[in-house]
Write a protein that binds this DNA or RNA. Structure first.
Lengths: 202, 202
DNA sequence: CTGATGTTTCAATTATCTCTGAAACATCAA
DNA sequence: TTGATGTTTCAGAGATAATTGAAACATCAG
């Protein structure tokens, strides 16, 4: 037995550790993909997040097997979302990147710019449809009027769902606390369900 | 001026009403797509939902410009998910379909389940990575140990987020905790955020 | 049974994303 | 200025996913 066994790096274990970190990057990539981002964004972010020192683009490409171009584009996107930031190392021409650790920052931006936009668009189209049907219902036979009334009612349901969703998401985004976007959004979905159920029962 | 102007269907307004309904189908399609379903599923469901009478596959195809094959597959999928159901019209060979009105319940459940799977996978890989890093950290220089410690800490952060998320999602999926839901979820999410923040600061 | 009508299936096409690789660009040192 | 180094851009390749169209299948009436 060597005198200081615990200081000899074990190649086998080194490899396992590296593999495990890459696996972490991958599952984070899967989650990010689930939320509508590119897989690569999650992978790169996770690699940065688990790295003690800021990484260069070349480091990232080497570790994650991505081309320079892909790394550049991914970092640009992550930076735009504010979840990764550049850091300069004096005397080094390369750019380095480190992960933003505040998950909420990411979440609130995501919610604001993605879900909220979608929901708003939806609401607007429901409102517009309601108006159009209202106008169309002014003419026609009684039967047609009845049909229009049904359509308006259903679209009104959708509209109220969208409005509830919109205010919930707004509230979420406005608040300074809360992490874990997915869960928060699920909360919103649940609320929507409640709302619809209640309205249907009345 | 005609004697009963309000009963004459206005072609212009008819067209606008139809366009508006199609637009509604489209935005619902977008939302569904965002939640991980196919776009067409949302469009077909929305068309059925806003229709006073059950629609035949041919109706749907004509309205949404989909091929018979696409309509058939989409309806099969919607039926499988239980958000659309067949209805028979006596003396008519065709199948008719109408929208299940409690879609949001189903959709949100499905989304939660999917996410739960992902989160579980993530958690497992975090745990595995933590173990691997722990083993690797047994050897190496003090500097390497420090690096491993950082990595473990960060992965521990991810792990705690995943664990909280997992239990929250489990509760939501399993329970009819749905009724208590929105605020409870927000509360839990907030607690989660607090927890992560506290851990980071120590 | 046969033909008419409607539905389902699936291989092939088409559309949509992502990534690559190379060129253009930028910056700095010598 | 020139060359070395690093970054960005983007047309095209490659991978995935959605859609079509036609054939197979199912059902019913005559």
């Amino acid at each position: 037995m060597s005198t200081r066994a615990q200081e000899a790096p074990d190649p086998q274990r080194e490899l396992e550790a590296r593999t495990a970190r890459l696996r972490v990057a991958d599952v984070v990539g899967n989650l990010m993909e689930f939320w509508g981002f590119k897989r690569g964004m999650g992978r790169v972010w996770a690699l940065c997040y688990t790295s003690p020192k800021a990484l260069s683009a070349a480091d990232i490409g080497a570790e994650l097997q991505m081309s320079a171009g892909a790394v550049s584009m991914t970092l640009a996107e992550l930076t735009k979302w504010g979840v990764v930031r550049r850091s300069w190392v004096p005397g080094d021409r390369r750019d380095f990147y480190e992960a933003e650790t505040s998950v909420w920052k990411l979440v609130s931006r995501v919610v604001r710019e993605r879900e909220l936009t979608l929901v708003r668009e939806a609401k607007e189209s429901f409102v517009a449809a309601d108006r159009a049907l209202q106008l169309a219902a002014q003419g026609g036979t009684p039967e047609e009027k009845k049909r229009r009334a049904f359509e308006r009612d259903r679209i009104g349901q959708l509209r109220s769902i969208a409005e509830t969703g919109e205010s919930l998401l707004s509230a979420l985004v406005a608040g300074e606390a809360i992490s874990a976007a997915p869960l928060a959004v699920l909360g919103a979905a649940t609320a929507l369900y409640e709302d619809v159920t209640r309205r249907r029962r009345r």
